[in-house]
Amino acid sequence: MAANKSQWRTTIIISSSLQNHETCRMLSTQQHRVRFSDCIEAGSFIYPLSGTAFLLVEPQDLGASEQPRLIEHIKKFVQVHRNCFLLLYAPFNGEKELQTLALIQSRFFGSNLKILPVRNVAELVKGMLTVAKATSKPHVDGIRQRMSLVRAHIIENSGVLEMLRGIF
């Protein structure tokens, strides 16, 4: 018996600097509404319905000479977006990629930046869509409702509650 689920679709505002990136083609193929903007940070994906923003950092951005510029770019992105994610695109985990990851983690520790290391474009798209869907308004309300029902069920069936009733 196959479940007949409709595919989730959303609007995504993407930096014009990524217009020819494979990620945009993949999102369009999945029938998401893709809009390009020159007004957002280069390398950004913004999901307005979920209030999340993603910044793509690719291997060519990871060079030692580029790191100060990269840190400033990320710093500006974090200041603008409250719920932000860094997509660290590293097709392989070499020493250079791990050093850059450690540098970014230590520099932005305690900030609202979350880092998602991804190895290919499919992981990149899947990661963004998973986060955006889980935090979008209709879905987050459903998740909260299910969590509330689970919590009520656990409390009702708790052995501790029965023991406390016996004491009082």
Rank of each mutant, 00 (worst) to 15 (best):
M163H: 11
I74P: 01
Q19N: 08
A2G: 02
A2Y: 10
T23C: 09
F77G: 01
V160L: 15
V57H: 02
R146N: 10
L70I: 06
R151F: 10
T23P: 00
F168N: 08
A3E: 13
M163W: 09
Q79C: 08
R9H: 15
C24E: 08
T100Y: 01
M163F: 14
T11Y: 02
T11D: 08
K75H: 14
A102L: 09
L161E: 08
H153E: 12
F54K: 00
G110T: 07
F45C: 03
F45H: 06
G110M: 05
T23L: 14
I115M: 09
G63Y: 05
L56G: 02
D61E: 14
F54Y: 11
I46R: 07
A132H: 06
I143T: 12
K5N: 14
P91K: 05
G51P: 02
A42M: 05
E22Q: 14
E41V: 09
L27W: 07
L55C: 06
P91N: 05
S65M: 07
S16G: 14
Q67A: 03
K96A: 11
D141G: 01
R146M: 13
L116G: 01
A53G: 07
F108V: 04
S148I: 03
V150Y: 12
F168P: 02
S106Y: 05
V160K: 07
I71K: 01
